[in-house]
Computed example of a mutant assay.
Amino acid sequence: MITVRSSDARGRGNHGWLDSRHSFSFADYYDPAHMGFSALLVINEDQVMPGEGFGTHGHRDMEIISYVLEGVIAHKDSEGNVQQLPAGEFQLMSAGSGIRHSEYNASESNGLRFLQIWIEPDQLGGKPGYQQKNFGRRNGLTLVISPNGEAGSLQLRQNAKLYQVLLDPQQHLTYASKPGRRQYIHLVKGALTLGKTPLGPGDGASIENLRELDLLAGEAPVEALLFDLP
């Protein structure tokens, strides 16, 4: 079964310095029909004005992924990590027993657009952690996050995987699902057909009880994220 979450149906929070689209309930946006999917709790598409950002605040017991689409994030946290996260890179912050951090647009003249993703961990507490990596632009499926850090991926505290999907125009790809697993696709750009279901930029699709996912790119290159979830 495929259930589409269309881009224009997402919740919105516009705070002047921040314009955010929420695929699931978040902060002041509440929709009981969209409270997450499996361990995936948050996908926010955040656009941050130049020089603005999220001041120091705390998290615990959450796996927080940032994927920069445009611009650069300036990151600082209570574990001593001070980093720049440019477009194309993935960041994974494991909040564990508690971490405080800030995320700002590193530019005073250019905008910042990134995906903020929260995944619920399968273990509570533990030492906070920080990981960051650029996985390049390899065509097809690239594993970027996994439970054991296989193939050089970032290591997540949950039995879930995240793939970067990059397809050329009209390229076809098949993803095999294991029994009992669920998937979620978030389309970043391009047009994608999932089976017979069309998706456009910003659309999401939750997938249950399918043995294979057939992905077909449209007339333009496709960029998407594929989550494999418990």
Results as ranks from 00 to 15, higher is better:
residue 8 D to V: 01
residue 8 D to H: 11
residue 12 R to P: 00
residue 20 S to M: 03
residue 21 R to F: 03
residue 23 S to V: 08
residue 24 F to W: 06
residue 28 D to E: 08
residue 29 Y to Q: 03
residue 30 Y to M: 02
residue 31 D to H: 02
residue 40 L to I: 02
residue 40 L to T: 03
residue 41 L to F: 01
residue 48 V to T: 12
residue 48 V to C: 08
residue 55 G to K: 13
residue 55 G to E: 13
residue 57 H to W: 04
residue 58 G to D: 15
residue 58 G to T: 15
residue 59 H to N: 15
residue 60 R to G: 09
residue 63 E to G: 13
residue 64 I to D: 12
residue 65 I to V: 15
residue 69 L to D: 06
residue 72 V to W: 11
residue 78 S to K: 13
residue 79 E to C: 13
residue 80 G to P: 10
residue 85 L to P: 14
residue 86 P to G: 12
residue 87 A to G: 15
residue 88 G to Q: 08
residue 92 L to K: 10
residue 94 S to C: 07
residue 94 S to P: 05
residue 100 R to A: 12
residue 104 Y to F: 10
residue 104 Y to L: 13
residue 105 N to M: 06
residue 106 A to H: 06
residue 107 S to I: 02
residue 108 E to C: 05
residue 109 S to R: 06
residue 111 G to A: 05
residue 112 L to V: 01
residue 112 L to Y: 00
residue 113 R to T: 14
residue 113 R to V: 11
residue 116 Q to Y: 00
residue 118 W to I: 07
residue 121 P to K: 00
residue 125 G to M: 01
residue 127 K to M: 09
residue 129 G to Y: 13
residue 129 G to K: 05
residue 132 Q to N: 09
residue 145 I to A: 01
residue 147 P to L: 05
residue 151 A to P: 05
residue 152 G to R: 02
residue 153 S to G: 03
residue 154 L to Y: 13
residue 155 Q to D: 01
residue 160 A to D: 03
residue 160 A to R: 06
residue 163 Y to Q: 09
residue 164 Q to C: 02
residue 165 V to L: 10
residue 165 V to T: 06
residue 166 L to S: 04
residue 168 D to V: 09
residue 172 H to E: 14
residue 173 L to W: 07
residue 175 Y to A: 02
residue 178 K to I: 11
residue 181 R to Q: 14
residue 183 Q to N: 15
residue 183 Q to Y: 08
residue 185 I to R: 00
residue 185 I to K: 00
residue 186 H to L: 00
residue 192 L to W: 04
residue 192 L to Q: 10
residue 198 P to A: 09
residue 202 G to R: 05
residue 204 G to I: 08
residue 205 A to D: 05
residue 206 S to L: 05
residue 214 D to V: 09
residue 214 D to Q: 15
residue 218 G to C: 05
residue 220 A to T: 14
residue 222 V to N: 04
residue 222 V to P: 08
residue 225 L to A: 07
residue 226 L to S: 13
residue 226 L to N: 10
residue 228 D to I: 11
